[in-house]
Design a protein around this nucleic acid. Structure first.
Lengths: 163, 163
DNA sequence: TATTGTTATACTCTATAACTATA
DNA sequence: TATAGTTATAGAGTATAACAATA
C-alpha cells in the first residue's frame, strides 16, 4: 500500500536526521585527508596574507625567488605548477607593485630572469615569518616530532625516489 | 662601471641556471606538503574517475549518500563544503543521470531528502573500489602502518578535539 | 624549426543576491 | 520572520591557441 510505503519513508527520513553523518569511507582516503587538512589551514593563511595582499601562489613565488635569484620564468613556472600565460600576469602584478624585476637573460635573450627588489625581499622575509607562525598555530595539535614525521610521510608520496 | 655590473649579472644568471632549485622553505610547511601530496594523487584519481564521468566532488556525494541515505541537501551541503546553489546543479546532473532521487521531506516540506537509485548505489560501490586501488598505488611508497599514521596525523589537524 | 614569453580567450569553480515555497 | 532550495550572475582560477622575438 502507498501509506505503508510512505510510513516506511517517513521513518527512514527521521532516522537519517537523528544519525550522525557517516564519512568513514572518505576519511580512509589519504587524498581526502590531505585536502581537509589543507582546507583547515588555509583560512588562517589567507587572513594573515591579506595584510600583505598576497595569495598562496604569490607567496610561493616570492619564497622561490628569494631563495633562487635570477632564475628564468620557465623554471619558476614549472616549480609553482602554473602555466606560462597565467604566471605572466601574476608577475605583471608583482612587478607593478615593485616587488620584483624582470630582466632579459643575457645568455639567451628569449627568456627573462627574475629577481626580487629590496622591497620584495623584505616582504618575502616578513611573509615567511608570518606563515611560520600560522603553521605553528594550525598544527598545534601535533608535537614537533609528529609534525616532522607528517611532512616526511607526505613527501614520500610526491617526491621521486632516487634508486 | 656598467660593464663590470653587467659581468656580475651574467655570472649570477649563469650560477642560478646551474643550481638546483632551492624549495626548502616551502617544503618545511605542512600546508604546502599537503597540497603537493594531494596534487600528486589527483591525476590518477581523475584518470580513473573519467571512466565513471565523476569529479572528486561527485564521488564524495555518492559516497556520503550511499552511507547516509535520506539526508537533506542542507546536511550534504555542509559535509561537502559546497554552497547550496552550487550543490543544486551538481545534484541536477546526478539526478538527470538517474543516479539519485530528490524527494520532498515529509517532516519539513521546505527541504528535500536524497537517496541513491540502484544505479547510483552500484556506481558508488564500483567507484569506491577503483578509488581504493588508486590510493594503494599512489601511496605505494608508504607501508600500511605509515599510511595509517599519515591519516591519523592529518586528522589531528582538521578534526575538532573533544576535550 | 623549436623555445620563451605574451596576448586573447574560454572554461571551470566558487561566491553572492534575489526569488519561491514552506515553516 | 526565518529557513531550504533554486535561479541567475559575477568573479577567481585554470587551460588553450595563436603570436612575437630569439635560438
Amino acid at each position: 500500500m502507498a501509506t505503508r510505503k510512505h510510513e516506511k519513508f517517513v521513518n527512514a527520513v527521521q532516522e537519517a536526521a537523528d544519525q550522525p553523518l557517516d564519512q568513514d569511507l572518505l576519511l580512509s582516503l589519504v587524498a581526502y585527508n590531505c585536502r581537509r587538512a589543507y582546507l583547515a589551514i588555509m583560512p588562517l593563511f589567507h587572513e594573515r596574507m591579506n595584510g600583505y595582499e598576497l595569495r598562496a601562489v604569490d607567496f610561493s613565488v616570492l619564497c622561490l625567488l628569494n631563495a633562487n635569484p635570477n632564475i628564468t620564468q620557465k623554471r619558476l613556472s614549472k616549480a609553482v605548477k602554473m602555466s606560462p600565460p597565467n604566471l605572466a600576469i601574476l608577475l605583471d602584478r608583482l612587478e607593478e607593485r615593485g616587488l620584483l624585476l624582470r630582466q632579459r637573460n643575457p645568455l639567451d635573450k628569449r627568456s627573462q630572469t627574475l629577481v626580487l627588489t629590496p622591497d620584495g625581499e623584505r616582504m618575502a622575509a616578513d611573509a615567511a615569518q608570518s606563515v611560520s607562525e600560522i603553521e605553528t598555530k594550525a598544527t598545534s595539535a601535533l608535537s614537533d616530532a609528529e609534525r616532522a614525521q607528517l611532512i616526511e610521510l607526505l613527501q614520500k608520496i610526491f617526491k621521486p625516489t632516487r634508486s
